[in-house]
Amino acid sequence: MTTDATTQTQPEAELAQLIVETLNLDQSPAGINPEAPLYGEGLGLDSIDMLEIALAVSQRFAVNLRADQEDNAEIFKSLRALNAYIQAHREP
């Protein structure tokens, strides 16, 4: 499968679906640019939204996101980055 930078992969699409449902976003999951920032400008999410995503992700994928991780800014940078982190850390 070939993907360009703005096409969601299958797992990314599922994660986008989870985010939109969790936050009741007024936007289609497929419309989220996987490279765009989630927090602040980009999707315009605030720190309460990020908490909600972290809780939903840990419930769905059994991946714990912790605040003492220095690279949270990297992990939550975009849909793509978050998905990559989940795939690397989820329970088999």
Partner: peptide, 13 residues
């Protein structure tokens, strides 16, 4: 402070 994306993840912890 609420200024970081993981501010509330820190609170949860």
């Amino acid at each position: 402070g609420l200024g970081r994306l993981d501010s509330l993840i820190l609170v949860a912890e």
